[in-house]
């Protein structure tokens, strides 16, 4: 049930996760800030409301799966996994350090709770399609979620996977598009326009929803809607803001792969009420 209290709790969790992301990126002095902050609300809805999973048993057979196709948002994934209890929060400050289980991009063999290896764009969604097929074959009712970046849609493999997901009528698959409009070289629309995204996925025979990607209530409702859809995979276009939550990071392509400095961290935490 999605009560107002639940939504408020999720919002509080997302705020904590933003703090975790900023702190770990500051400690690492390397990594992707903007895209982690834009994706975190959708991931909060998944990990702390929607998905059936068991942090004490990461390989539980009947679990729902989350595949971070835009693997560079690994800090957002690690923040969720740590807060959910897959590993201690202290580990977060080892991000990107030699010997750490928290690699620059998600590694299924190192981090508890990470399902597959991603980081090379376009490959996560294909793997999600394969997992959805396996889940169906095994007769499991698991739902498979994958989160894509909008720049990522430039990879041809995404469209191969989109075609396959519809062809195999994978209604157990839900992709979420973190549509923050920016990629490393600038605006997605200017680098290589991927739009109109909704009509394209509709034409590929997907069920398409569009929400404010920072409105937790709207995200949760869209996830419920996706679950009720028969015979088609669902794409939730989450309209987001790169760097969301920290005003001086917002809407800036320049913060794609730049961590917060000590000064920026201090100001960001102050803004988030965590100084």
């Amino acid at each position: 049930m999605l009560t107002e209290t639940t939504v408020r709790e999720l919002e509080e969790t997302a705020l904590h996760l933003r703090v975790d992301i900023l702190k770990m990126l500051n400690a690492a002095q390397s990594g992707h800030t903007g895209g982690s902050l834009s994706a975190i609300d959708a991931m909060t809805a998944l990990y702390f409301h929607k998905m059936r999973h068991d942090p004490s048993n990461p390989r539980w057979e009947d679990r729902d799966r989350f595949i971070l196709s835009k693997g560079h948002a690994a800090p957002a994934l690690y923040a969720c996994l740590a807060r959910a209890g897959y590993f201690p929060s202290e580990d977060l400050k080892t991000l990107r350090r030699l010997g750490s289980h928290l690699q620059g991009h998600p590694d299924m063999n190192k981090t508890p709770g990470v399902e597959v290896c991603t980081g090379s764009l376009g490959q996560g969604i294909s793997q999600a399609v394969g997992i959805a097929l396996a889940s169906r074959l095994a007769g499991k009712g698991a739902r498979i979620y994958t989160l894509l970046g909008d720049g990522e849609l430039q990879e041809g493999q995404v469209w191969e996977a989109a075609m396959a997901a519809a062809h195999y009528k994978l209604d157990n698959l839900c992709a979420i598009l973190d549509q923050n409009g920016l990629q490393i070289d600038g605006e997605v629309a200017k680098v290589m326009n991927v739009g109109p995204v909704g009509p394209k996925f509709l034409a590929f025979n997907w069920h398409v929803l569009e929400v404010d990607g920072h409105d937790l209530q709207a995200i949760c409702r869209a996830l419920d809607d996706a679950e009720k859809t028969d015979g088609r995979p669902t794409l939730i276009i989450a309209r987001t803001v790169k760097g969301k939550g920290v005003p001086f990071f917002e809407h800036k392509a320049s913060y794609h792969g730049v961590p917060p400095s000590d000064d920026e961290l201090g100001r960001a935490l102050e803004h988030l009420g965590h100084s």
Binding site: V129, G130, E160, H167
Partner: peptide, 18 residues
Amino acid sequence: GIAEANMVGMAAGLASGG
């Protein structure tokens, strides 16, 4: 179909699913 990249990705996902 004629989509080798996605075929390999799907294979990975199927392996991940046991």
